[in-house]
Structure formats: C-alpha cells, structure tokens
C-alpha cells in the first residue's frame, strides 16, 4: 500500500501499511499520480530509531523515519528542513528557532495572543523551506512537534529569529557570516555528497536572502509586539 501527499509543492509517495501515518497526513493526501519523490523505510531504520528513543509505538517510529527519508532527499529538490516554528502574519513569514526548552512555542503563542487570527502557525517545529529564484517559502508539513501546529500552506519567509530568554524585549541583526553557525544547528546534513553539497548551497542562499536576528524576550505579548515592529521592516 502507498499514500501520496503533497507538501512544499511536491507529490511524495510513501510506501507504508500504517493507518497512523495515513491519518497524520490526512490534510496533505492527494490523488495525483504524478509523483516527484518516493520513500520507503526499512525495518532496520525503525529498529534503529526505537533504540535511540524507546517507549513509543512502531507506527510513531515509522512516521519519524519517513520524514527523515524525505528530508535527506529534499536538498536535491531545492528544499531544506530547518528546525524552527514558522508563523504567517499579513502574508509575511517569520521563523523562530531556539535550543530545545528555550521557548519558541511559548513565543509564537504570544503572537497568537497579541494579534489573534491575523497570525497563522504554518508549522510549529519542522517546516520545509522551499527555495525559488532568490525567494524562500516556509511550508507546512504533517511533521510539526508535539503540539500539532501545522497547516497545509506556505508563506514567504522574511526573517529568522533565534530566541534567547531575556529581561528586556529586543532584537539585534546578526551578520550572515556569524549567523551560519546558528543555521547549521537547525538542519540535518545528508550523508550523500551531492545532497550535502546542495544543503550547504541552500544554507548560503538562506543567509543571503533572509535576515537573521537574535531575539531576547520574556513571556509576554509585549515580546510579540516588540518583535513585530522590527520584523515588519525586515
């Protein structure tokens, strides 16, 4: 059995028996027979994932492995998984990244509180960035972190913020040569040479076209207001 999902403007065939995966991907299913990419995960990959983080169902491990298989191929399609939470407001996409536990989810909740329905969460954790002619679009995917924040649409990315906890809400632009280390921390590097080289090229393009900021913030709607004022001009 296989299912076909459409995300980041690609039709991706997933060879799977899992009803869980089909359900997780329900917003992204398509009947199209025009396949851009096919993936299938092996028993060994599932067992490997299980050994790394025990305590979940086989369906869950397969779901995780499917995305890894997809993301390892994505660079060859000018797309990149960048670990971040992406929101859209007024047609502008903003990405927030942070070390686990610093609070990117908390911060995007502040945007929802401050600006309500004018803010959409495209993906809470694992969006695909799609590169096209010097523009970068962040795309929703069924893989999105434990809160389940995702919608099947994309937004043009206008800025990336690295979140730090701070007493005072403020942003500071980071020059691309220094921001590269931060971006490298949010991607996975494929093992095949062609996809790895492409990954570096896409990182370079991302740093060239999208400004990167350090954001210091507390947990308040004021943090979202402060960030929005700066990012609107990015």
């Amino acid at each position: 059995m296989s299912i076909v999902i459409r995300m980041s403007q690609l039709n991706i065939e997933i060879d799977t028996q899992s009803e869980y995966i089909k359900k997780k991907c329900s917003d992204y299913l398509t009947d199209s027979a025009d396949i851009d990419m096919s993936v299938k995960v092996t028993r060994e990959e599932i067992e490997h994932e299980k050994a790394l983080s025990p305590g979940y169902t086989d369906d869950y491990y397969e779901f995780v492995c499917v995305y890894r298989a997809i993301c390892m191929k994505m660079p060859l399609y000018d797309r990149l998984l960048v670990h971040s939470a992406v929101i859209d407001t007024d047609g502008r996409g903003y990405a927030f990244a942070a070390k686990s536990g610093v609070g990117k989810t908390t911060h995007i909740r502040m945007w929802k509180q401050a600006f309500g329905d004018s803010v959409s969460i495209i993906n809470g954790d694992k969006p695909i960035y799609r590169f096209e002619n010097g523009r970068i679009y962040a795309c929703g995917t069924p893989w999105c972190g434990k809160e389940g924040y995702n919608i099947n649409r994309e937004t043009e990315l206008k800025a990336i913020c690295f979140i730090n906890r701070g007493e005072e809400n403020k942003l500071q632009k980071i020059e691309p040569g220094k921001a590269s280390d931060l971006v490298f921390g949010q991607i996975i590097m494929p093992k095949s040479a062609d996809a790895a080289i492409k990954t570096l090229e896409l990182c370079s393009s991302l740093l060239k076209h999208v400004p990167v900021y350090n954001l210091w913030c507390d947990i308040s709607t004021d943090a979202a207001h402060t960030a929005k004022k700066v990012l609107e001009l990015a």
Partner: peptide, 23 residues
C-alpha cells in the same frame, strides 16, 4: 569537502567519512 557558506569556508563529511564524523 570544503565549501563556502556566507563568506566563510566550512568542512563537512560525506559518504563513508560521515559515519564517524557529524557536524
């Protein structure tokens, strides 16, 4: 392999070399 990213040269491992070297 060495490549330039945002004006800085970086090195990554690919293929068999990537088995023992991440980053």
């Amino acid at each position: 392999l060495m490549r330039e990213v945002a004006g800085k040269n970086v090195v990554i491992a690919t293929g068999d070399a990537a088995r023992n070297f991440n980053g």
